[in-house]
Design a binder for these strands. Structure first.
Lengths: 204, 204
DNA sequence: GTCTATAGCGGGATAGAC
DNA sequence: GTCTATCCCGCTATAGAC
């Protein structure tokens, strides 16, 4: 018995691949149609416009990124060091699997800041604040466990150290001549190394 | 007396602005012509193709980025901590002035890895290696001054902490609602903060 | 050197037959 | 729902008058 094909899902999968790889402008509806094994007219029949399709993919990507960190930061059962280790590990794994997402997000925000900015805020609204994390930092600082640092700076540093290497992977690849396997090993090592780097930096 | 106009220089300035802002594909020869206050035919008369113009801009941008770090890392009169402070300070200043360069480079490498990879290697070849920095790290580790870390990891961490915030500035801007002046102040603070963060992390 | 006009192509979107 | 054909636009590049 032939498995029933889900055309809509095929299209979404194809669009995710093509948009994340190429960005809005360089992605074409023709590429997406080919990738989904349908023709151009069908693609427009299911999703009326390129914009419609694009925003579905964008919202999904940004939501994934955001939920991952928000969920951990607002968990009041984890201490500050555990949070750092978990975020670093999960982000590095995530960017290994989805290497194009960070550039995809940044690129589209620059292309269309107002519209994309609005959409990001919609994804964020229902999520609890980072107050838990901020309080924890203040508390540990007062106890003399860590150096003074703002939650904003610490989060920015954590994200920088996780995201940038994934983002610049293609550049490092070209310049270093490392093989795929060597890069993989480095990336796996970095989970511990980066967490240690951050924790060494704040712990007194 | 009317100042003689240098059309070629006007074109290069216009191309730098348009290409760095929009990337190769989204930048148009029309935009560049408008920005340089000439018409489309003239633009093609001076620089035969979009590719020609683009590679001039790319080589210039990558060269600037690379020379800055190579020059400092290979200076054997600076100790390891001085190098970190200088690189962090210079990069953060540089990215404040040229906010689009990091994304510009990464984006084009992804678009066309082989060709762009070749061009990057050409810019790099004449420059001395990072051996000086690598030796210094090993030496300081053996003296018990710093923790063990590879030159590769340390450089990657330094660059991540300097570049990513510049790259993600538009995203942070949209999400945080901070004003331009507040962002400026944060960025200025980060010069010391990031250098301290790195040095605290490696110093025993 | 400078301009207008246009060739030639690839893109999003849709009409209309089946 | 599915397909072919086509509209119309914006892009790079160039021809050709001045």
């Amino acid at each position: 018995m032939q498995k029933t094909r889900n055309v809509e899902q095929d299209i979404i999968d194809a669009a995710r691949k093509v948009f994340q790889m190429n960005g809005f402008k360089e992605a074409t509806m023709r590429d997406i149609a080919n990738e989904a094994n349908i023709n151009l007219a069908m693609l427009h029949y299911y999703f009326r416009s390129k914009d419609n399709l694009f925003y579905m993919i964008f919202d999904e990507a940004f939501g994934l990124l955001y939920e991952k960190i928000a969920h951990i930061l607002s968990d009041d059962k984890l201490d500050i060091f555990e949070k750092i280790r978990i975020i670093v590990s999960e982000y590095i794994t995530f960017f290994n699997i989805n290497p194009h997402i960070p550039l995809f997000i940044v690129r589209e925000v620059i292309r269309n800041p107002e519209k994309i900015g609005e959409r990001m805020k919609v994804s964020i609204n229902p999520i609890p604040t980072f107050k838990t994390f901020s309080d924890q930092i203040q508390e540990q600082y007062e106890k003399g466990v860590i150096r003074q640092i703002s939650a904003f700076s610490l989060i920015l540093n954590i994200i920088s150290l996780c995201v940038f290497p994934a983002l610049a992977k293609s550049v490092v690849n070209q310049l270093s001549g490392l093989t795929e396997i060597e890069m993989e090993a480095i990336s796996e090592n970095r989970k511990k190394e980066v967490a240690d780097f951050i924790i060494n930096s704040i712990r007194i």
